[in-house]
């Protein structure tokens, strides 16, 4: 690790100028994702542009119809906010399950969304990687995680992106045209890249206030209860007032997967608050995810085992929002 310069701009324009002027500059939020990558020799920025002094990024604001969470708000603050706990139950539930108390005290909302994708070959020490030919992520020509793939298939493990997508969040991004909003799902390209230029800055997240009857749940399945990435995570948001359900799945692909066919079949159901509806939806969702997920084997379990974990977790999530 050899960072040569640390800058703490107080204006967004200043941050963008530094990023534009130095190709080896990176944006530095909490650092809990990037520092291990530097330790592994996977990232070696010369200049770190800290976002810690940008006031716009550090606050949670409450509007009449929406709230705005600054991208530098740390995860612990999210979990301690009483209004968020009550109104965005699935989001706070996800934040509580991220890593450890120590990491949640530093890690930021923006950093969690923009965390690097991971895989069992890439996230290793330099010495370990030297034993194999380089993969796509480090300038090679192969993906070890999915054999014969023509591109990198490292998974996206964010716990927050899943509920944010289910709550229809919008991202606020500072770029050439000033502050702009984009739907969170538009951040993720199907090839695993992100729809965000290196000199653009994620400044905040807007969440529309849900109807008072809305029910939501977040479930994370992991090998260990703490300090672990998800085997799979699920966010379900059910709005009875408009008979709509959002089901988003994380850790099964290089981006969060929205189960739109299942959501569609939900809207056609006559009685949604029944055991039969839960059973039917679970089956539809299972088939839909089977089509959409990647055939990835992780360190401790293969795709079939992940799908089994999904089956149980989704049924539980649907029961929690529909049967009450």
């Amino acid at each position: 690790m050899s960072i040569l310069k640390w800058v703490e701009p107080t204006e967004l324009n200043e941050a963008v100028t530094i990023l534009n002027n130095n190709v080896n500059a990176i944006i530095y939020a909490g650092g809990t994702d990037i520092l291990p990558l530097m330790n592994y020799g996977l990232k070696s920025p010369e200049v770190c542009v800290s976002l810690g002094k940008l006031k716009l990024l550090t606050e949670i604001e409450f509007g009449e119809n929406e709230i705005r969470i600054g991208s530098m708000v740390n995860l612990a603050s999210l979990t301690e906010n009483k209004f968020l706990k009550k109104t965005f139950f699935a989001l706070v539930g996800a934040a509580i399950r991220v890593a450890s108390p120590q990491i949640r005290n530093i890690a930021t909302v923006g950093g969690n969304i923009l965390q690097a994708r991971r895989c069992k070959y890439y996230n290793r020490s330099k010495r370990w990687r030297e034993g194999i030919d380089p993969c796509f992520l480090i300038g090679g020509d192969r993906c070890y995680q999915v054999q014969k793939s023509d591109r990198c298939c490292a998974l996206y493990y964010s716990d927050l992106a899943t509920p944010l997508m289910a709550y229809q969040a919008m991202l606020e991004i500072w770029g050439e045209k000033g502050l702009q909003r984009i739907e969170i799902e538009k951040l993720f390209n199907r090839n695993g890249t992100r729809n965000l230029k290196r000199e653009e800055i994620l400044t905040g997240i807007f969440l529309p206030l849900p109807h008072s009857e809305t029910r939501a749940v977040f479930i994370k399945e992991s090998i260990r209860a703490s300090l672990d990435f998800p085997v799979i995570n699920i966010a379900v948001v059910y709005s009875p007032n408009i008979k709509k359900i959002s089901i988003v799945i994380g850790a099964m692909a290089p981006y969060p997967l929205c189960l739109s066919d299942t959501e569609e079949s939900f809207s056609r159901l006559k009685n949604v608050n029944t055991v039969v509806a839960v059973k039917n939806l679970s089956e539809v969702a299972y088939e839909e995810l089977k089509e959409k997920r990647l055939l990835i084997s992780e360190v401790e379990l293969n795709t079939n085992q992940k799908m089994q974990r999904f089956k149980g977790a989704l049924k539980s999530a649907l029961e929690q929002v529909l049967l009450y």
């Binding site: 330790n39 800290s50 450890s100 120590q102 005290n105 530093i106």
Partner: peptide, 27 residues
């Protein structure tokens, strides 16, 4: 571990626990 997994480096900063291996001194 040096990567925030084990917590052996935990200190309290401004009332909150942090992994000191996962933070830069400038932070």
């Amino acid at each position: 571990c040096g990567n925030g997994h084990c917590g052996a480096c935990t200190v309290i900063m401004d009332g909150k626990t942090v992994n000191s291996c996962l933070m830069l001194a400038v932070q």
